[in-house]
Design a protein around this nucleic acid. Structure first.
Lengths: 208, 208
DNA sequence: AGAGTATCTTAACAATGATTAAAATTTTCT
DNA sequence: AGAAAATTTTAATCATTGTTAAGATACTCT
């Protein structure tokens, strides 16, 4: 993974270098997992895309289970950050939701991607599983709370918040399954269609 | 799988019996695949849930690849049938979409389930992959055509049909990921929330 | 240039799991 | 009950892959 150093910067901060390389590993691994599944991707598959041997990966992660775990944590962080930033900018709850969706899509289809789809949580060990489930739940609950706030301020209309959250998260989380190569035009098209469509489903009827 | 015969009926039509048992196998396999992924589920896992040994599965399918393929075909059929039936009953395009969503959700959460999520198409062999992709595309195209028809008859408002289809299909197809045990109440809740939410996103603004 | 650390490779092990053939068992029908 | 077919099991093979240890190479700084 030596070439990365050149791409990545020129002030030789060792720790920073290490973090960046590891982050690249997580992205590549996420791409593999999204395509072939956790057990379907061998460490060799991941390593080859980095011009490494499988054994080299053990310099960055303890084992394969920790690699998925790290990918899932990274995915959770990306989503959480999108939500936090959208909320920090204020406005009506609906406006916050709209910004969140855009930010999250931007992140997944942009430099932060590819992001792992958390589709094989059952394959994780008990501790990792509990932690990932917890992060996932926290995200969902935060989004639910935002919806509830929107019902309060009148900007959102929804009945079953849990289910509505499920529906919206499903749509968003599935994107990395079919968005692969960097493709700004496609990314823009996703955002331009997904966000208004989902927002429309949350907006109260005009004649109310 | 001997017990099944008793559950399943009493007129001893051999071919029918075989088909029913095979169908049960496909459902059980689908459940496993949805939980642990294709490579993550061993044939032993599937066999154990049927009180069989892994070798017995080879009496019903040629090999593991064909098992997934069959699961995916079955999933495609379930969706296709829902769409066909909804269309056969006529009405506005929006009404047809609404019925389709309900039928598909009913099927996945009812007796036809569990249905496999087609999330590991890349793991299939070339011929199987092409066929499954073809079925998937046909379904999407048919849905798109329905949306287009709705734009024509004024019942639907959408800009990017391909993307809108993606969004809706993602929401629907992800359901089997978290709906596991038979649970009529949860199934009803999904349908009661998902269908109006998605339909709302397609309905033209009232003040148009 | 050369020491010292970070990074990576080679080579091996152990375990898992798909697959097959032959044998055993169960089921159905007469 | 008993024959014939359908269904399932046992046992063995084969390839793949996660993992580890020890050694080699590359990078950074003085």
């Amino acid at each position: 993974m030596a070439e990365v150093a050149a791409e990545v910067g020129r002030h030789f901060d060792r720790e920073e270098q290490h973090r960046l390389k590891r982050d690249l590993l997580l992205k590549v691994a996420a791409a593999c997992f999204n395509e072939k599944g956790y057990s379907g991707t061998s460490l060799k598959d991941v390593a080859e895309r980095l011009n490494l041997t499988n054994a080299a990966l053990y310099y960055y992660v303890k084992n394969k289970a920790e690699l998925v775990y790290a990918c899932y944590c990274r995915a959770a962080d990306v989503g959480w950050r999108a939500l936090s930033e959208a909320q920090a900018e204020g406005g009506s709850a609906l406006a916050q939701v709209e910004r969140y969706l855009g930010y999250h899509i931007d992140a997944m289809t942009g430099d932060a991607g590819p992001v792992a789809i958390m589709s094989e949580i059952p394959s994780l060990g008990d501790a990792h599983k509990a932690d990932v489930l917890d992060r996932s739940r926290r995200h969902s609950r935060a989004f639910e709370a935002l919806l509830e706030q929107g019902i309060g301020d009148g900007s959102i209309d929804a009945t079953d918040l849990r289910m509505t959250t499920n529906a919206i998260m499903s749509t968003i989380n599935w994107i990395p399954k079919w968005f692969h190569a960097p493709n700004p035009e496609l990314a823009a098209a996703i955002k331009a269609t997904y966000v208004p469509f989902l927002i429309k489903g949350l907006t109260p009827a005009a004649d109310a």
